[in-house]
Structure formats: structure tokens, C-alpha cells
């Protein structure tokens, strides 16, 4: 897979796991198309996502439909799959654990840190993927692969089964696709 495509893929997933916002929601079709072209995925998975896009055309309604999935899945209360690595990889199922710190240190070692508005914790799934997108863009292949092996994959192994097992169609399918790419067929890709 060419470096540019890898960067786009990482960024597409970063966009998906971020809190829903119009910019991403309105480009869902484009993201699905990218995934269909670059990752091996069963047609029924794509069909679920396309059906969602048809049912909720780009706009406010689609955004609210994503919120309805996102909040119980990642954000408040039930939190079926907390999106923070340290919840899975450290003892105690809490945020801001040793893993958060390790991830931050890794970002720093490559010259990156969290933005000034600090709108997210550094080990949020979307942030880790965005970081990999930037490394791919920068051509930092070795660092990217080290981060992937050390931090991303253990996190994905823990969180993706939960998202896939949820009853949230968009995110469950996106998790399936990320799983296919990162955990099942990355080598081939």
C-alpha cells in the first residue's frame, strides 16, 4: 500500500472515531468508497453503511443519527466501548493511565503533542489514528510501525470486538473494516 493511501486510511478512521461533526458526517460516502477500494471487506458490510447514508442524507439528521450511536457507545453513561487505550491496557479501567502517558511520550519523541485547545485525551482511538496519519504523511514509516505494534494493535485487539459487538450499525461496520485492515490483512495490504 502506498504511503499516501495509508495516511488517508488512518485519517478516515480517525475521522470516524472522533465525536460526530458535520465535516466528517457529510463525507461518509467518500470514506466508504475509500475503504471499499483499499480494504478487503464483505459486500454486506458496505451495504449496511450505504443504507445508512441513504436513510440519512448528509446534513443535520445524519449527524444526530451518528450522535445516537456515538454517545452510548463511547461517551456517556453506558459507554459500551470507552475510546481510551488506558482503560483497556492499564489496571483499573480508568482514563489517563500509564498507557496515556506512554502514548504522549511517543508523540513527543516524534515532535508531536496535543493541540493547544486540548480537546481530547491523547490515547483516544481517533487521536492515535490521526497521529499515524501524520506519520504516514511525514514518511516516518519506522516510527509509524513501532507505534502501531506497541500501542495501536493491543488497543484495537481490546476495543474492536466491543464495537463490533455493539448494536450500533455505522460504528460496528467501521470497526469490522478497521479490524480487516489492521488485524487481519494489513500484511497483505
Amino acid at each position: 500500500m502506498v504511503q499516501e493511501t495509508r495516511g488517508e486510511l488512518y485519517l478516515s478512521f480517525a475521522g470516524i472515531w472522533q465525536r460526530p461533526r458535520r465535516e466528517i458526517a457529510d463525507h461518509l460516502e467518500e470514506i466508504i468508497e475509500l475503504w471499499s477500494e483499499e480494504i478487503e471487506i464483505p459486500p454486506e458490510t458496505v451495504a449496511v453503511l450505504s443504507a445508512f447514508c441513504q436513510r440519512y442524507p448528509a446534513g443535520e439528521e445524519r449527524l444526530n443519527a451518528l450522535w445516537a450511536e456515538y454517545i452510548p457507545l463511547f461517551e456517556t453513561g453506558a459507554v459500551e466501548a470507552p475510546p481510551y487505550a488506558s482503560v483497556y491496557l492499564d489496571k483499573g479501567r480508568q482514563v489517563l493511565g500509564a498507557e496515556t502517558r506512554a502514548v504522549q511520550a511517543f508523540y513527543a519523541s516524534t515532535g508531536y503533542g496535543m493541540g493547544n485547545d486540548k480537546q481530547e485525551l491523547s490515547d483516544h482511538l481517533a487521536v492515535e489514528l490521526e497521529f499515524l496519519a501524520l506519520l504516514a504523511r511525514d514518511g516516518e514509516e519506522t516510527s509509524g510501525e513501532t507505534f502501531r505494534q506497541k500501542h495501536l494493535l493491543p488497543f484495537l485487539q481490546a476495543i474492536l470486538p466491543r464495537i463490533k459487538g455493539s448494536r450500533r450499525p455505522v460504528y460496528a461496520q467501521a470497526a469490522e473494516i478497521l479490524d480487516n485492515w489492521q488485524l487481519k490483512s494489513y500484511e497483505r495490504g
Binding site: 485519517l11 480517525a14 475521522g15 472522533q18 496535543m114 493541540g115 481517533a126 497521529f131 501524520l134
Partner: peptide, 20 residues
């Protein structure tokens, strides 16, 4: 300069070391 969604930023290396 940054790209992505702007969640991450380029770091001042001194600050990073102090935080450690």
C-alpha cells in the same frame, strides 16, 4: 504545516522534556 484534523501539534522539545 500540521495537517490532519489539527488535534495534534508540533511540540516545543523543551516543554516535552520538562513534562517528563
Amino acid at each position: 504545516a500540521l495537517g490532519g484534523f489539527g488535534t495534534l501539534t508540533k511540540l516545543d522539545p523543551k516543554k516535552a522534556a520538562a513534562a517528563e
